[in-house]
Structure formats: C-alpha cells, structure tokens
Simulated assay, not measured.
Amino acid sequence: MVDKSEKFSTLVRIGFFSRAILYSVLGLIALTSAGKISEGTNGIFQAIKDFPLGTAILWLMVLGLFGYALFRFASTAFDIENHGSDKTGWAKRIGHAGSAIGHLALAYSAYKFATSGSDSGGGAQEAASGVLSMEFGGTLLGLLGIAFFITAVFQAKKGLTGSFMNRISGAAPSQTRLLGGAGYVARAVVFLVIGWSLFKAGFMSGGAQQIKTLGDAVASLAGEGAIFTLVAIGMLAFGLFSLILAHYRIIPDMGSDGRVPSFRA
C-alpha cells in the first residue's frame, strides 16, 4: 500500500517532469521561433498542444504543476526542507511561496489550453485585475513582486554556488551541476522581470495587463541581443535539469518523523 508521503513524492516528481517540458519548450521556442515567443506563455502551451498527444501532456502538466505548487507551499508553511525560521530561512520560504503562486498560474493556463484550446482571457492578468479590485490588492501584488525579487536573488546564488546539489542524489549525471547552474542564473533574470512587472502593477499603478508570466518575461527580453540568447539557452538547460530532478531530487517525507531530509553531503 502506498502511504501519503509516497503519493506526495510521486506528485512532486510529476511536477518536476512537467517543469522539464515547460522550460525545454520555452527554451526551444525562444531559440528557434520569434513568432511563437512573441506570444509569451500562450505560445508555449499552444506548441505543447500541437504535439502528438498534446492534450494528454497538458493534463499531465496541470497535475504536475499543481503538485509542484503544493510542494512549495508546504516548504513555506511547514519548512519541510529545513530552511529554518531565521531571516535567511524565512526569505527562502517566502520565495518558495512566490514560486508556488507562479506555478499555480501556469497550471491554470495549462488547464485552459487542455479544456478549451486557449487562455484568451489571460489568466494571470485576469487574476491580477481581481486582486487589484480588492482593498489593499495593490499592496498584495507589490509584495508578491518583492517575493519574486527575493526568489531571484536565491536563484542566482544557487546557480553560482551550486548549493542546489545538496538536494540531489549522488547518483545524478555529472552534467547536473552545469545544467542547474546555467538554469538557475537564467531563471533569476526571468524572475526579476516578473517581479518588476508585479511591483509596478501593485505600487506604481501600472495596471494588471502589464503583468508578465514566464513566457511573457522571456519574450520581453527579445530585443536584448546576447542577454536574450543566454537566457533562452538557460531556460533549455533548466528544462533538462528539471528532467534530472524528476528522478534524482531528494524529496522530504511528509511524516512527522521524517520532516527533515538527509541531504547529499
């Protein structure tokens, strides 16, 4: 019989696999198709839908991205990855909350494409408009932008120091460090773009329509020459890295006796 912790672990691994598809397609589109990347996140999901069994893949991504979001929410609320409760620990955990919200938005977009063939309503912008209509909604969006800034800092630090290897099995391929390093630095750039769009929408009356999701953030760099190319390569590297994580990532048990995982030395 499979216990709850094992089910959770399986769901998270599907999440890493879904993330691998998402980032690999994003990187490939950015490097090969200017027209598609200009469509932002919608272009990514439309490309996936056009694959053989594309709708089935989208449904798998809905499940996986939702599972990954739960993993990050659990990291924030219950500290299942043992970051601690000091300032640094809480900064990492708040960053995970921003990541969780971002992946929930991606899961919703995948759901819209799986069920209706498009996300013409602009899921993230629509949700942001709803938040802005609430009292203190602008503050919430602005704070979410700050959470993405914090996440970007830790993503860059991970990429440069290789600290992410502590949470990966020693049996992982030798290329894992290089792929992860390039991917995390590229993600840091993308998260800064997303964070700035949220910060402007929340604190500078920029409007919900300017908020950028993953694909939109990469597309906004299209005129930046070498920076765009390096970020696109980094997105592809992060996709391959996520595929490795789907098998080799150390995922902590959810049981009360196994909350803190034995990370790789």
Rank of each mutant, 00 (worst) to 15 (best):
G138K: 07
Q155M: 14
N166W: 03
F148Y: 14
Q155E: 14
L143M: 12
F149S: 10
A156S: 09
A110Q: 01
F136V: 11
S116L: 01
F149T: 06
Y111T: 12
F113E: 04
F164L: 03
Q155D: 15
D119Y: 02
L160Q: 07
G121T: 15
F113A: 06
L143W: 06
D119P: 06
F154W: 14
G123C: 08
S133H: 15
G130A: 09
A152M: 09
A124V: 14
T139A: 12
A152K: 04
G117V: 01
L143E: 05
L144E: 02
M165D: 01
Q155T: 07
I146Y: 06
L132Y: 04
A156I: 12
G130V: 07
G159C: 10
L160G: 11
G162S: 08
L144V: 06
Q125N: 13
A127H: 03
T139P: 01
G137V: 04
G122C: 01
Y111K: 10
L141G: 05
S116P: 00
G145M: 00
L132E: 07
G137H: 03
S129A: 15
G137C: 04
L143H: 02
F154M: 11
Y111M: 14
M134W: 13
N166M: 09
Q125C: 00
M134R: 13
F113C: 09
F149V: 11
G137F: 00
G142Q: 10
G162D: 09
I146D: 07
A124L: 14
K158I: 04
G137I: 05
S118V: 04
T151M: 13
E135H: 14
S129T: 15
Q125Y: 03
N166A: 12
A152W: 02
T161G: 09
S129C: 13
G145D: 01
F136D: 08
D119K: 02
F154R: 06
F113Y: 13
G122F: 00
A124W: 02
F149E: 10
S163A: 14
I146S: 11
M134V: 06
F136G: 08
D119N: 09
M165E: 11
I146L: 15
V153P: 10
A114I: 03
F149P: 09
S118C: 10
A110R: 00
L140Y: 09
T161W: 08
Q155G: 02
G162F: 10
E126A: 14
S109T: 15
V131Q: 06
G122A: 05
K158F: 15
L141A: 05
I150Q: 02
S118N: 15
A128Y: 01
A147M: 13
G122I: 02
T151A: 15
D119R: 00
G145S: 00
